[in-house]
Structures are given as C-alpha cells and as structure tokens.
C-alpha cells in the first residue's frame, strides 16, 4: 500500500519537473483528476490511520507508565 502511494507521488512530482508546463494533446482532465484523487485519498488514509494508532499507542504507554508508578508507590508504602 505505502509503496503504491509513494509511487503515485513520485510519478506526479517527477512529471512536474520533467515535462513542460503546457501540453496541447487531446486529454481528458477528468481521468487525471480521478487517478490523482485516488492517490491523495490513499495518502490521507495512511496519515489518518498512522495518527490514530500513534494516539492509541501514546495512551497505552501513558496508562502503562501511570500503572507502573502506582505499583511502585504502593510497593514503597
């Protein structure tokens, strides 16, 4: 999945650097938009999923640390 996203971004960025800014070929901008949106949406999915898991992981670590501290404190008493 990530390889696909990176490949999509790479295609768009490379073409933006290599190709001239104006082309007059017979093209359908709708098709390009469609592909671009797929790439962009996959990217958003990846970012949102990572963020969600990151948050979950932070909460998990936080809870774990609090638990450990509480246990330590209890043992100390």
């Amino acid at each position: 999945m990530y390889k696909q996203i990176l490949k999509g971004i790479l295609i768009v960025t490379t073409t933006s650097l290599v190709f001239p800014p104006k082309t007059y070929a017979y093209i359908d901008p709708g098709s390009g938009s469609y592909v671009f949106q797929i790439v962009l949406t996959i990217l958003f999915t990846a970012v949102i999923t990572t963020k969600t898991y990151w948050k979950k992981m932070l909460i998990f670590i936080k809870t774990l640390v609090i638990k450990l501290i509480k246990t330590k404190n209890a043992e100390g008493k």
Partner: peptide
C-alpha cells in the same frame, strides 16, 4: 491545485483507471 493540474495532464492513461 498545482499537482492536481499536472496530474490532469500526465495521469490520463494510468492503470488505476
């Protein structure tokens, strides 16, 4: 806007279609 514009020109025959 910018990348989207380039995609409209260069991604018209992508296998994703």
């Amino acid at each position: 806007l910018h990348l989207h514009s380039l995609a409209q020109k260069h991604l018209t025959r992508h296998r994703f279609l």
